[in-house]
């Protein structure tokens, strides 16, 4: 039984990473109805930034935890740049055009990093060294506690931001109807850019969580993590913040259970099967509402 709780805890912490990435997908999809394929690769970039910045911070004698801020700023800037350079000119174009562009950006980042840093595995930087503590029979690592609490804090902050601030309300309005929102005096372009920046900064946070949790990463981190986080977003109901969290945690737990009780080889197939199943049964996700198509 104690083993089961161990797997559950591991599942919740991988799930937290997925959830944080899924939040980025969900926010962008909610506002401009685009599956931002490049989102996963922003996390990959974030992991490289975290690796580089920790070594610099250690040299300067500063605490390596500060790399969280550097990474979030860097990925936020990257998100802003991709939006301005690639997606903004396509705002009025067909959705298929934007989708292909997003795929292309994802490939561009992956391959640029493969050339610059080679595609071998990199060892994750040590951001802090913490042991573990025991509750009953269960061995709980501090890093798992930290990862799960980062998710809780950032999700509550995001919810507060979206519901209470002017910018957050503007985001909701733009996702509801951009034209009406601009008639109400909301600057749609700024709002969309802010959404991208927040989503990408969350991705930066996720990449720090990733390097805390896993011991190594490479330039393909984005595509596998991105697909799983996307599955999570769809599972919970794409466009919904609570949906992304619920979906992420569910996928994380299912994955760890499959790895523990069936066979790690089948993780990917089961993830894809969940995606296909949910899209066929209820495309709007667990928390989503079915909408009728209007002519």
């Amino acid at each position: 039984m104690s083993q089961f709780f161990q797997y559950l805890l591991n599942g919740l912490s991988t799930g937290s990473i997925y959830a944080l990435v899924a939040l980025g997908y969900t926010m962008v999809y909610g506002i401009i109805k685009l599956i931002n394929f490049a989102h996963g690769d922003i996390i990959m970039v974030g992991a490289f930034v975290a690796l580089g910045s920790t070594s610099i911070l250690v040299k300067l004698g500063l605490p390596p935890v500060l790399c969280v801020i550097i990474t979030m700023v860097a990925t936020g800037a990257l998100g802003f740049l991709t939006e301005k350079l690639a997606y903004k000119p396509l705002r009025k174009a067909k959705r298929i055009t934007a989708l292909i562009t997003a795929i292309a950006i994802s490939f561009l980042l992956e391959n640029l990093f493969a050339i610059r840093f080679s595609s071998r595995d990199k060892t994750s930087p040590t951001i802090f060294e913490l042991g573990s503590f025991k509750i009953g029979n269960i061995d709980i690592q501090w890093k798992l506690v930290i990862i799960i609490s980062i998710l809780v804090i950032s999700t509550s902050a995001l919810t507060l931001f979206v519901n209470r601030t002017r910018m957050g309300k503007a985001m909701k309005a733009v996702s509801e109807n951009p034209d009406a929102a601009s008639l109400m005096g909301i600057n749609v372009d700024t709002t969309i850019s802010t959404t991208f920046i927040i989503g990408a900064a969350l991705a930066g946070l996720a990449s720090v969580m990733y390097v805390i949790y896993y011991s190594s990463f490479n330039n393909m981190l984005g595509s596998s993590l991105g697909i799983k986080a996307f599955v999570a977003a769809v599972l919970g109901g794409i466009g919904l913040i609570p949906g992304a969290v619920l979906g992420g945690l569910t996928i994380g737990v299912i994955e760890n259970m499959v790895a523990a009780y069936i066979d790690p080889k089948w993780i990917d197939i089961i993830t894809f099967s969940i995606l296909i199943f949910i899209l066929l049964v209820k495309p709007s996700g667990i928390l989503g509402k079915n909408t009728k198509e209007k002519v």
């Binding site: 298929i96 697909i227 197939i269």
Partner: peptide
């Protein structure tokens, strides 16, 4: 799959492609 459209269909075909390979 083809009950879906657009982005969802793209993702589902991606999922199938990868699932076949796995």
């Amino acid at each position: 799959c083809l009950r879906l459209r657009g982005d969802y269909l793209a993702i589902v075909t991606l999922g199938f492609g990868e699932a076949i390979r796995c």
